[in-house]
């Protein structure tokens, strides 16, 4: 896989990260198109199931982007999101997908650059990790079956 192009799901809270992504747009800061954003009202809205479903369906990486600490529109939703992601990390480690494929990223609405930079960094990280093992297993099965 020389030109592995990962698929990355970014859950972005409406108030900060999604706004920062728009801001990256108005500043014309390019970042890898691998990152696809799903808007949520608060990063705390993202359940463990949403993240696991993405990996089950073949996503190579997932990140949950919320507000800076103390800036959450809903008091501490971003902190609860971080706890949940920590829990998902452990689970991913246990089942062999690897906890490093999921991350929490914090930014304020004005940080267009941070949004672009973290999209770059995360994509690079996942590129190094290679494809989601689920993909490889299924591919093997397919070729074994054939």
């Amino acid at each position: 896989m020389d030109h592995f192009s990962p698929v990355i799901v970014a859950f972005c809270c409406h108030y900060c990260a999604y706004t920062a992504a728009d801001m990256a747009g108005s500043m014309r800061l390019s970042y890898p198109s691998n990152v696809k954003i799903i808007r949520v009202p608060c990063s705390g809205k993202v359940s463990a199931l949403h993240i696991m479903r993405a990996f089950q369906k073949g996503a190579d990486g997932v990140y949950v982007a919320g507000c800076l600490e103390g800036d959450c529109h809903f008091k501490d939703g971003n902190i609860k999101a971080a706890k949940r992601v920590a829990y998902v990390k452990k689970m991913l480690d246990e089942i062999g997908i690897g906890g490093e494929r999921v991350e929490v990223i914090r930014m304020s609405a004005g940080m267009g650059e941070r949004f672009a930079q973290s999209a770059k960094d995360f994509t690079e990280r996942i590129r190094k990790l290679g494809p989601n093992p689920v993909r490889a297993v299924l591919n093997q099965r397919e070729s074994a079956g054939a």
């Binding site: 949520v40 009202p41 608060c42 809205k45 949403h50 479903r53 529109h73």
Partner: peptide, 28 residues
């Protein structure tokens, strides 16, 4: 904010406009 919907173990709570099936549909 949807925190309750994300945590409810029985999926008894849905946040309107951001229902689980909508988010899952986007992921899928």
């Amino acid at each position: 904010c949807g925190l309750c919907a994300a945590e409810c173990p029985a999926h008894a709570i849905q946040l309107m406009q951001y229902e689980d099936q909508q988010i899952m549909a986007k992921v899928d």
